[in-house]
Structures are given as structure tokens and as C-alpha cells.
Design a protein around this nucleic acid. Structure first.
Lengths: 388, 388
DNA sequence: CGGATTAACTCAAATAATTTGAATAATCAA
DNA sequence: TTGATTATTCAAATTATTTGAGTTAATCCG
């Protein structure tokens, strides 16, 4: 899945493709830009950019947005991404439900939907995904022709590994290659990833990591996940299972990090004292009422979090660590405010430009949005070309 | 140093450059190849490859190596890298000495040297490095014109961080930018990295990782370092300090992983019982005589190593973890053989193609060779182009 | 107010790399 | 010996780029 593909040489056609992507990406990062400005940013001639913009406008990917006047000289005609120029489907498969989001080119969700699942075999899930796709298409005129691809998020780890304890609920999926399965079913190019990785990309598309290129994302999902972004690209590992930080044993934790720092952890903790902590609303409620049992959990979870951050900072040296996922914002804020970050860390700098730990801002559907973000990322940033 | 540089667009000239690099890299990986074979591998026309090969041969980077006959059809003229076509200087700066190695295009060391240091201020070290460079040039005719660049390895972490405890011995270097310093002094393009990262690349150039693209390298240097290679490229972190695994506190370790698993750790342990473990030879000797005190250390070190591997596997999901650095091969072998690898890991696969933990094979000068390998890597693999 | 300056953009030609297609060369196999 | 196969070369076509001159539209400044 992530093998050492041989690199491709370049020719005129592939240069054009790369330059188109570069122009789109540049405009995406900046919002709106003029031809000459783009040319300077990409070290291309204005003429080349002009040609490419004509192309992209013709394809409906760019729209003009008036003129910008910054002093002397002819005002620059500004271009922006056409929100309706392209769409990306994001699908999140959970053991109990499938979520979908259709994002436009600007990264805004135009349709979202959730369907509960009775069975989790590949057939059922593929059918559900197909239905969700057709629903989304029905709501958005012309989206069919403008689909850029689909991103699928599934609970990891992928393939047969030593991690079996927690049961992902998707046991029938061992021998299936999800990429070709969904690609054939939807008739779209497909990217598959796990929840934490996708969430990390969601945060880059429209959240706290918009201007970051090297950061880590700690994600509360089924367990505790980690998404690593280096130089703007996901670090997925050799088999797509990078970031399984939850399974690391930690000092002071019963079993591993996940056993002290995850949704199941807090749920178990509250269950023992006869309280309900199944959903985000319940946790939010408890936190608002300063529930003592929840605070007990928070105290030991904060220690586990400090340890997780220590590992991530020293191994990966990110610009910042972002915290997000299936937790109430209040609790995430509590973590950010009350976690005692280790002094013994390469990230403990004298005058940091960014907080070492911050809360993600892309909301509850992070992973679903992230699935679509994977697709947008591919179309907006020039990739090293691989053969086949 | 590792900021989010904007991407560059492509044009004919830059395509040629990229294709030249791709051809060189392809030949490097394969040993020798014919034009048509290269064309297929890179999805280029044979004519394009023919032109590029004429170019590269003219520049002295390729040499012809006879004909290869594989059945019907005209035999293909084979090309290989010209070992004397390019050289890379590797420099390793330690608190007590500076080491140098001049590698040819094939990655073989043609000159190596070591100079002890009295002082470690930038001026002294730059002078030493200059002298080593000129010595190397004097020994190899025509190397001056054919220098591809220099790689410098220095003990991390770089910049002001929370890691101060162990004292790198290079305190005067806080406010110096080593890249421009050495680049100006040597008149060469320079890459700066830490020892573990460089060692990881050495292993890829000519060691155990030649056919791997995503792996981790645990390195015994001053402390315990980690080099991460993802998709053939180093993961260096936002500030170049990725891989400081030694500073992570671990269950069962006095202070952190490094305090149980490093040269200083074994040295301290042996010192307490009045034995000498300062250099590799002494450790080798003790191991050969099955010294009980050394074995005591090994037992607890093996546990620390198991934990380090757990972290690395679950966070990074590598194809394999390679163990190397300043330890006798015997001891590294002992670690590989006797470390109880965790079952709770994404790397615990049913039918692994590679051992999860293996010993590096690039010998004692790994980091110095790795410094030069950074330069060769840059010239042999097409990079995403960045502006400026 | 009006000419000089500045900057963005366009047009047409030049350029530099590629691909394409036909021709040639060298080997194997029947 | 002849036909099939594969590698390579040559010359022309192609495709993207850059270059340079010219146009447009704004600000600056006397």
C-alpha cells in the first residue's frame, strides 16, 4: 500500500499538470492572488501562469474576484478557487455507523449525513457508502462531473498486527483491499487512511494547522490516535499504521496510554461509579457540573497526556501538538490548560512562537472532513510523481 | 531551517534537471542499466533517456560497462555510475574529535581521517574541518572539481531546547548557523544533521537498508538517537531535532531511556564496579569474556531497548528497526537476539518479510559516512523543488 | 492637470525539453 | 538464411515553457 514506488521522469505534459496543481495550491493557501504574484511565488513567468489560469478558469476551477490595488501600476486581477469547481467525498466508517461529508473546493462541507449500521461486513458497508454518495450528489447540482475523489477513514490498524485486544468491530475486513473495493464501487479515485491521520489533515485544511507544515495531532477516537504531518504530508508508515500511540505502555497507566486517555477509559471510569459517560453530551454535562469522578479521571488522564506529548515531541519535533477528536471542547480546553508539559523536551524552547499544546478547531466531524481533506490535499499540492 | 518553503513550478530546464537526477538514482539503485530499461522505469521515451545519458556521460558521471544480452534483440549497452564522477565530503563533529570521510559516487570511502580536538569553539572546528577537506582533496586527483557537497554531523539537539542535562560539549554553538558557516568555509553546498539521522542514511546508501524506504534506525552515539526514514527521506522534524528518543522517560529506567541504554550508561555501570568501559574495544573484550557486570547491564538495557522499539514501531510503523552505532558488533548482535519484542505492536505481523529488529552493517564510522550520504542522497533522488 | 513612473497583463516569437515515427543494428530462433 | 525481437539513433513534430516588445491602468509628482 505504501511501497517504494519508482519515481517518474518529467515531460512537458507532466510539467503542466504539476504547475496547475501548484497554482491551485498557491491560491488555496493565499485565498486570492493575481497572475504576477503567483508567478513570483512559483518561479514561473507571468505568461506561463496566465496560460495556466486560462486553462483552470476554462475548467471552472478558478473564478475572478475583482481587482486589487496595492499602489502604483495596473491593478492585479484577483483569482480565487471556485468553490463549486470541485468536490471531495469524505467517508468515515465506524463499527456502528457510517458518516459522510461532501466538501467543496474551499473545504466547506456542503452535505453531511450519518447512517447507523446493523452489520459491518464489506458488502453492507459498501452499499451504505454508495447510498450516501448518491444522496450527496442528488443535493448538489453538477457535483457528479466535478468529483475529485473520495477519502475513506476506517479504524486502524490495517492488516494483521499484534494489536487485537480492543476489537475494531470490523473483523470481516482482514482480507479485503479497501482502496480498490471503494474505488470500484464509487467510480472515483480513493484514499484510505485511519481516523487520526485524516483528522490531522482536516485541521490543516481548515483548522488550527492551516499555516503549519510539521505538526502532530492527538486524536480521541475509539482509542487514542496520532496523526503526523511532516512538510505538509502525512507520515503513514510502511503499512499505513503509523500513529498507534494508544498502544504504548506508559508509566502510571494500567495497561497502555489508551487505558488512561481515551473515550473508553473515561467511560469505564464513570461506569465503575455508576455514571454515564457514553456520549459527548454526557461528558460535557458532567464537566459543566464539575463532577468529582470526572475530575478524578481527568487528573490521571492529564498525566498520561503529558507523557504522550513527551514521546511525540522528542521523537517528531513538531511545531505544535494539536488535540482533538471525540471529546467536548471544554474538556479539550481543560487538557490544554492543565497538562504539565515536560521540561525535558526538545520542544521546550525559550521563546516559542506557538503553544506546545493546543486544541483543534475543526469540530466533531474532524475525521470525516479529514477523509475528504486527503483528496483535496492531493489535488492542491504538487506530488512527487510515481510510476503507475 | 526546515520551514514551509513554497513550491516551485516546473519548466523545461527544471524537468531536465529532475530527469538527470532520476536517471542517476535509477542507475544507482540498480547497479547497471541500459537506456531502454531506464526509460521504462521512469516512464520516459528512450530518446529522452539517450539524450540525458549523453549529457551525463559528457559530465563524467556515467561510464559504459559493456553489453547485456538477455535473449533476443540487440544487446543493451549498460551504464553505471562513474565512481570518480562525483565526491561527497562527510564530517562528523564530536566534542573530542572531528572525523572526515570522502565518499565517491558509489558510496565508497576513498579517504578517512580523524583529528583530536583541544577546543570546541566554532573557529577551531571550522579550521579543523577545512584542513581535513584539503587533506582529502590532496589525496584524490580531480576531486575538487567534482565535489557534490558536504554533510556535517553534529550532536543535537539544535537550537535552544529543554534538553540541557547531558551537555553536548558544544556550548559555544548556540548562536551560530552551522549551515552557512561551513558552506562559506568550504565553498560547498552543505547539509547539517544529527548523528542518528545521518547514520540512518548511511545504512540506506550501503548497509542494511538499501532496499528499504521506510525504516527506523536506533543509534548509540553520545546518548541514544533515532533516525526516521519515510519514503526514502529523512523525517527531521520542524527544527531538525526529530529522533531524540533517549530523553523519553521509560518504565524501569532511572531517568530516561538513555540512562539505561547508551554508552554513558554502560560506562557508568562498569565504573561503579571499578571496571573500564570507555571504548568499544574494552566493551568487546568484556563481552568476549562473558563479564557478569556487563551482562547485568545488558539485561536491563535489553528491557529498555524493548521499550524503545515498542515506541518506535507503534508511532512510526517502519518496515524494520535497525540497531547501530558505537557498540561492538557482538553486543549489537546480543541485543538483536535477546530483546523480547513486544507482542502489543502494529509491527507484530504473522508472516514478516523482515526481522523486526536487525543490526546495522555500515560499521563504526556510520555517522561520518552518513554525513556524506546526505549529500549523495540529494544528488541521486529527485526532490520536490522549493523556491530559493 | 498632465507627464513620468510603475506594475500587470497580452501577444507573438524563440527556446528547450520532450515525444513520435521511421530507419538501422545486433542478436536469437526456426 | 530468414524472420522476429529488442536496442538504439536520426530527424521531425509537439508541448510546454521563456523572452521581449507593446498595451493598459493605476499612482506619483511637478
Amino acid at each position: 500500500m505504501f511501497q517504494n514506488a519508482p519515481l517518474q521522469g518529467s515531460n512537458a505534459e507532466r510539467s503542466r499538470h504539476q504547475n496547475r496543481q501548484a497554482v491551485l495550491g498557491q491560491i488555496h493557501r493565499q485565498g486570492t492572488m493575481g497572475r504576477a504574484e503567483i508567478a513570483r511565488a512559483l518561479s514561473l513567468s507571468t505568461q506561463a501562469v496566465s496560460n495556466i489560469i486560462a486553462d483552470l478558469s476554462g475548467d471552472g476551477l478558478l473564478i475572478e474576484r475583482g481587482h486589487l490595488n496595492v499602489g502604483r501600476g495596473q491593478p492585479a486581477r484577483q483569482y480565487a478557487l471556485n468553490p463549486k469547481g470541485g468536490f471531495a467525498l469524505g467517508i468515515e466508517v465506524r463499527p456502528d455507523a457510517v458518516l459522510s461529508a461532501l466538501l467543496n473546493m474551499e473545504g466547506q462541507a456542503v452535505v453531511t449525513k450519518r447512517v447507523a449500521l446493523q452489520k459491518t461486513d464489506p458488502g453492507t458497508i459498501v452499499d451504505t457508502v454508495k447510498t450516501l454518495f448518491h444522496h450527496a450528489l442528488a443535493d448538489v447540482p453538477n457535483a457528479r462531473r466535478r468529483m475529485l475523489g473520495a477519502g475513506i477513514v476506517m479504524p486502524g490498524p490495517f492488516g494483521a498486527t499484534g494489536i487485537t485486544g480492543h476489537g475494531t468491530g470490523l473483523e470481516d475486513w482482514c482480507d479485503v483491499d479497501p482502496t480498490t473495493l471503494f474505488s470500484d464501487a464509487l467510480g472515483l479515485p480513493v484514499e484510505v487512511s485511519n481516523d487520526a491521520n485524516a483528522a490531522a489533515m482536516a485541521e490543516r485544511l481548515s483548522g488550527a494547522a492551516q499555516d503549519l507544515s510539521t505538526y502532530a495531532y492527538l486524536y480521541f477516537g475509539a482509542g487514542l490516535g496520532l496523526g503526523l504531518v511532516s512538510g505538509g504530508h502525512l507520515v503513514q508508515g510502511a503499512f499505513g499504521n503509523a500513529g498507534e500511540i494508544g498502544h504504548i505502555p506508559a508509566p502510571g497507566c494500567r495497561d497502555n496510554l489508551e487505558s488512561a486517555l481515551s473515550r473508553s477509559s473515561v467511560q469505564r471510569h464513570l461506569q465503575r461509579v455508576g455514571k454515564k459517560g457514553d456520549d459527548i453530551e454526557a461528558l460535557d454535562e458532567l464537566f459543566t457540573h464539575e463532577d468529582n469522578d470526572l475530575y478524578d479521571w481527568l487528573n490521571q488522564a492529564t498525566e498520561a497526556l503529558a507523557y504522550a506529548v513527551t514521546i511525540v515531541e522528542n521523537i517528531f519535533d513538531p511545531e505544535t501538538v494539536i488535540l482533538g477528536g471525540a471529546m467536548p471542547d471544554q474538556i479539550l480546553n481543560h487538557f490544554v490548560a492543565h497538562t504539565l508539559l515536560p521540561a525535558q523536551s526538545v520542544s521546550n524552547r525559550p521563546n516559542p512562537k506557538l503553544p506546545r499544546l493546543q486544541r483543534g478547531t475543526s469540530g466533531r466531524m474532524t475525521a470525516t472532513l479529514g477523509a475528504a481533506a486527503l483528496v483535496l490535499h492531493r489535488t492542491l499540492s504538487p506530488q512527487i510523481a510515481h510510476a503507475h
